[in-house]
Design a protein around this nucleic acid. Structure first.
Length: 572
RNA sequence: UGCCCGGUGGUGUAAUGGCAGCACAAAAGACUUUGACUCUUUCGGAGGUGGUUCGAAUCCACCCCGGGCAACCA
């Protein structure tokens, strides 16, 4: 699926996950098929950090000829919904990945998990704990000191089983009891100090309905989900590293119960490894904080084009190819790094340059009058829709006696190395002709209101008949038939590279007040045909797309996806 | 301060005991009917101290620094 991704960068070396999987393939531990999974919790929209995980999970499976399941890790009904589950599926498909028939819900395994829990109780591996949450915290101890045993730990298996069944029957209130694993209250790893396996929640589940009032905890559920699906390689982010012994403990119990999938005679013991999550400069990546931005209306919803969510990037005009290329380039490691958003933008421009249709649009118009141009001149510029694509077509832009150019493209007293329009000098009007400015006209405030000059009638299309070179080329739109378009100029959401870096200040204080500026621009007539989602390069300015939410025929709204690189602006 | 995991140019990464390389960023130049793209060049790196070795980014020890874990969240 990644044929269309450019691989001009040297293939990143075999990162540790590839090495790990390759080794397991070689030793036959996979039973012939590498199986991975992407296990989002449907409690929010996925963002570019998840895209990294998606690319790793699906990418590793593809690379080793295996498969990757999509699984909703929906074990906490308090926060989850169909809306989120649906959006996650849509976003993964948009990224270009497909799970085939490998779609699962953790909640479909609730019966199985419940049975496993009962077996664990019978075998003395789990017990019902009556401690309140506060007591349980006290009993757990602190890292430097061992914890104390819960009274429930010494209860008979039969009694615990009965209590657990009563929990499930709804006889207890939330938090009144819980099921815990019997492991080691003295473990230096807090997660091994008899972790909670089931809690009571009298909350209906968006998928399982009102069948349950007890729900499994992540550590218990996740191992069972992986094992049930025959997952061989379970990759997640670094914060789960300390959970690994517990993951393995549950897999051991399943093994004892003979509940592991057997593939080609090999019992599949899923294994977990962890990689560093993606951090991107000038944004935040935590679902909680993104939710906060949405709820406090700091942005216009999850798909606000400034959001790092997949739907936000999509609306902004990002392409799946660019996101995948980016995920390939950032590599995989265990070092907690912060990637420069400039790399993402590089990948974006790289793709858009190849595929975006070219048009001209003027953002800050300055009227230019071509004094020697006949009223019905009949000249028009014929320009390629995309010079990087030989198959792309051409469009005509009518040239007129009055046109608009970018105010920045004119300087009455030019600084050195200014190659654009300036009195006395020639400049090329893109695709149309060579123009020599004679003078600027000012109003009573000294503001330049229009510029006059003459064109070279022998320069149709922009080439001089005598072959003389013209250094500067600027874009323009015809005055009479230019299209008024709304353009939303998006910039980075935050004005510091790491908004979470300052413990003294709330990250919202670092929001960039100029992250959105809405302006009216003048576009060339061909833009009238633009449809929602279409991507364009406005020449010499940047990449833009037609907004999928607010744009209407006759009232077009464009989002600035990313500017063009501009070495002139950087210099001055 | 208990346990776990990390530390290679500004940023992200490569090497698996044998010349520290690539990409992004930055800078200079060439080309150019987009000051874009493309091309060339430059800049700049091993947290520290010891040790093992003919040879250490890589192995060992100690130290320093960063992150994670102490939700009945995932």
């Amino acid at each position: 699926m990644s044929e269309d991704v450019k691989h001009d960068a040297p293939a990143t070396g075999r990162h540790f996950l590839k090495q790990w999987i390759a080794e397991d393939v070689a030793t036959g531990r996979t039973g012939g098929t590498v199986v991975t999974r992407f296990p989002p919790e449907p409690n929010g929209y996925i963002h570019i950090g998840h895209a990294k995980a998606v690319c790793i999970d699906f990418g590793m499976a593809a690379e080793f000829g295996g498969r990757c399941n999509l699984r909703m890790d929906d074990t906490n009904p308090a926060k989850e919904s169909d809306e989120y589950a649906d959006s996650i599926k849509e976003d993964i498909h948009w990224l270009g990945f497909d799970w085939g028939d490998g779609f699962y819900n953790a909640s479909d395994l609730f019966d199985r998990m419940y049975e496993i829990a009962k077996k664990l109780i019978e075998r003395g591996h789990a017990y019902v704990c009556d401690l309140s949450q506060d007591e349980w915290k006290l009993y757990r101890g602190i890292p430097t000191e061992p914890g104390r045993e819960s009274p429930g730990r010494r209860r008979s298996a039969a009694d615990n089983l009965e209590l657990f069944q009563r929990m499930r029957a709804g006889e207890f209130k939330d938090g009144e009891k819980c099921l815990r694993a019997r492991i080691d209250m003295a473990s230096p790893n807090l997660h091994m100090r008899d972790p909670v396996l089931y809690r009571i929640m009298h909350v209906p589940h968006y998928h399982a309905g009102d069948k349950w009032c007890v729900y499994p905890m992540y550590d218990f559920a996740h191992s069972i989900e992986d094992a049930s699906e025959g997952v061989t390689h379970s990759m997640c982010t670094l914060e789960f590293e300390v959970h690994r012994p517990l993951y393995d403990w549950v897999v051991d119990r399943l093994d004892e119960l003979d509940m592991l999938v057997v593939r080609n005679g090999v019992r599949i013991r899923p294994q977990q490894r962890e990689f560093a999550r993606l951090n991107l400069s000038y944004t935040v990546m935590s679902k909680r904080k993104l939710l906060q931005l949405v709820e406090e209306k700091r942005v216009d919803g999850w798909d606000d084009p400034r959001m790092p969510t997949i739907c936000g990037l999509r609306r902004r005009g990002y392409t799946p190819q660019a996101v995948r290329d980016f995920c390939e380039r950032i590599g995989v490691s265990k070092f907690e790094s912060q990637t420069d958003v400039a790399l993402l933008e590089y990948c974006l421009r790289d793709d858009l340059n190849l595929h975006a249709t070219r048009r001209m649009a003027v953002f800050n118009p300055l009227k230019v009058v071509v004094d020697n141009y006949p009223q019905q001149g009949g000249l028009s510029a014929e320009l390629p829709d995309n010079p990087t694509d030989a198959k792309a077509g051409l469009r005509r832009v009518p040239f007129e006696r009055e046109i608009f150019i970018e105010r920045d493209d004119f300087m009455e007293e030019p600084v050195k190395k200014f190659f654009r329009m300036t009195p006395g000098a020639e400049v090329r009007l893109r695709g149309a002709c060579i123009f020599r400015c004679t003078h600027a006209v000012r109003d009573e405030h000294g503001e330049i209101v229009e510029v006059h000059g003459t064109y070279d009638p022998e320069s149709g299309g922009g080439n001089a008949a005598d072959g003389r070179k013209i250094k500067g080329t600027i874009h323009w739109v015809p005055a009479s038939c230019a299209l008024r378009i709304e353009v939303r100029l998006y910039d980075r959401l935050f004005n510091v590279p790491d908004p979470l870096d300052d413990p003294e200040r709330d990250f919202v204080e670092f929001l960039n007040p100029d992250s959105l500026k809405s302006v009216t621009a003048l576009g060339e007539p061909a833009l009238a045909e633009a449809r929602p989602g279409d991507k364009f390069q406005f020449e010499r300015v940047g990449y833009f797309c037609v907004d999928t939410r607010d744009s209407q025929p006759g009232a077009l709204v464009f989002n600035r996806t990313v500017t063009l690189r501009d070495s002139w602006a950087r210099k001055s």
